[in-house]
Write a protein that binds this DNA or RNA. Structure first.
Lengths: 375, 375
DNA sequence: CTGAAAGCGCTAACAG
DNA sequence: CTGTTAGCGCTTTCAG
């Protein structure tokens, strides 16, 4: 929108037709309109010569639709969560491109400033919003809902409106701990994530259920409370080594994410404890750090790409369904159809948390796990 | 822009004044306008009651300014470049917030699709653009320049318009290699980045100049061509171990980035070569993987936050200067003043590549370097 | 089936 | 100083 940018009317003037004719040729709206082939060619030629590009702001004002969805993510974190966001984003980008939607990211520097910043962007320039890892207060989600449709991923608070997507945390943790048990481990520690996070609690639940089903004792002294950071994994590993008597030492540690596992691995390695010969370490997420540890991590992978795709599709379905006045259905699906497809195909299940879709996870076996030493 | 969203006119109708009065009270434009305090209060009350929020699309169309800058970055990469982008983004966000500008990120999935995707977004919704690591063809930068102002970071092609920001690659590499030499290393290898990248070449130049100034021989067999990936570092380390006779083995490796250093570290460690006792390894960038290697990496840190801030300020200055018709100066600086300040303060220097500002780097000493074995 | 006219929500530039 | 009018660039609607 600067210097000499050609407008629709410029072209209309050049060619000597109405701006409507130009609009219908270039932006293919208005179904019933017929322009003679000769004029059509002249319009296209003029548009090309003048390097015409439609002005999305004007179009948006008129159509009440920007064909743009936003992703809100907190960009202050330099640990592994970022890589997760990138993978989600790749899926979301793919889906958005396929459906002719723009996807833009609205980075939020700090959790606290979210509320202000987020409402700033809900000013007509976006048709819908995808929240990643947000904690939306009831008030904010109400305000948001008045302005646009949204879906969330890894929401840390119960959803008021719209759907929430998450990994099948409990299932993933369960599968990993069963795997460790199948290797012969009897004493499996858990470096749990922060307990204000629903995902952490679910992973802990999966861990407990797996121990029980494997007929193993669940020693509370082997469950440690940590944060999702490398440094926290490091400290907790030191704590474990200091507080545990050799006899009670676990032969495997299941960490609530890869960052924790990375930190733990570093400390164990520094103390001369060999992985996986003396102790097995497993993570969760399968992000970049899983590949940079001394022994590449056995971990639980989430279908991040598919989740990104699903987020966009669910959002657009919501817009289609709930805002018919905006016309232009993008997906053309029935209400709930997108979610139903995911469930039917086995990609996701309806979680215990209301309105949450849990995506199936997968255990990735690498070098950081093996049978316990006595085997 | 959905369901019942109050507009300016709604408020005007409620209160019984002109929409102009409302506009001037709520959005503080139109300097000369006076509204009685009583009306002002009633307007504010009504706006609050109706939860009024200005529609940025309508405002943008009218003012020809969105107060929004975009960042274009390629989001397909899952290696360390991401973390760099995040740090840059944090700086950019800070500056944008301070100057009352929205900052949004336009992720580009693949390098090849950039041209299309990028022009898509230059449709009036953005006042300016910041490119990270882009290779803009001459044609694309021309088209872009017709539509909006832009600046670039780590541009891989010479700049047609606008300024480019980069780290002082040569200076950083020089400082690191001088540091290694000062520890007593005589045979220092370099795992160079891809030679189509200007930054890689500059790092290589710094390496060579440092060896020369330190009076060390520059053995071409110790310079390896790699890519900016962990796996490439891994392979190159294997190559080094296979091709180098023990007598000719370097005692230090300076890697063109941290990912390469991480891969190299893994292989060396796996072969039982102790770091830094037997060989020192140094990286460049100081990103997350520098903290997850067996020995935390000695590396060259770039002032990413400051670069993000500078990118936004330089861009807004360009808009102020070159698009006076849009009014509303954001910075109110003279042309070139922002760059001059950076140079005067010593934060950056004018690079050899035309129109490039090189930001001062810093050697961060950690655990992966030490004196050579014979010492 | 075509073309002129009205309007999306807001603001800048006027005339009263 | 107020209040009205005329757009911003595009699209939808409604006469011709």
């Amino acid at each position: 929108m600067r210097r000499a940018v050609a407008t629709l009317q410029d072209i209309a003037r050049e060619v000597g037709v109405s701006s409507m004719a130009v609009s219908s040729v270039l932006n293919g709206s208005q179904k019933g309109i017929r322009v003679s082939d000769a004029t059509r060619v002249r319009i296209l030629e003029a548009a090309n010569r003048l390097q015409y590009r439609p002005n999305a702001v004007a179009r948006g004002l008129s159509r009440r639709r920007m064909n743009t969805v936003g992703v809100v993510a907190e960009f202050y974190n330099t640990e592994d969560i970022d890589v997760i966001i990138h993978q989600l984003l790749n899926g979301a980008l793919e889906a958005a491109a396929r459906l002719n939607q723009c996807l833009i990211v609205c980075p939020v520097p700090h959790p606290s400033s979210s509320s202000l910043k987020v409402l700033d962007i809900c000013d007509g320039r976006l048709d819908g919003l995808i929240f990643i890892g947000a904690s939306l207060s009831e008030q904010l989600s109400e305000q948001l809902f008045r302005r646009l449709e949204y879906v969330s991923l890894y929401s840390t608070t119960p959803q008021q409106h719209g759907v929430n997507l998450d990994a099948d945390n409990e299932g993933g943790a369960y599968a990993m701990v069963r795997y460790l048990a199948s290797l012969g481990h009897k004493r499996i520690a858990h470096f749990a994530g922060p307990q204000h996070s629903a995902g952490s609690i679910e992973r802990l639940t999966g861990y407990r259920r797996a121990l029980e089903d494997a007929g193993l004792e669940c020693d509370p002294n082997l469950v440690f409370q940590t944060y999702f950071y490398i440094e926290s994994g490091r400290q907790t590993a030191k704590e474990l080594l200091e507080t545990c008597s050799p006899a009670k030492m676990p032969t495997a540690i299941f960490c609530a994410n890869d960052a924790i596992a990375s930190g733990a691995t570093q400390v164990l390695h520094d103390r001369g404890i060999r992985i996986p010969e003396q102790i097995s370490v497993a993570g969760f997420d399968d992000c970049l750090v899983a590949l940079t540890t001394v022994r590449r991590l056995t971990t639980v992978r989430q279908p991040l790409r598919a989740m990104g795709v699903a987020a966009v599709e669910l959002l657009l379905e919501q817009i289609d369904v709930n805002e018919p006045e905006r016309g232009r259905l993008v997906l053309g699906r029935e209400p709930g159809q997108t979610a139903q497809c995911l469930i039917d195909s086995g990609a996701a299940t309806l979680g215990s948390r209301d309105k949450t879709l849990n995506f199936r996870t997968e255990v990735i076996v690498r070098e950081s796990t093996g049978p316990p030493p006595s085997h």
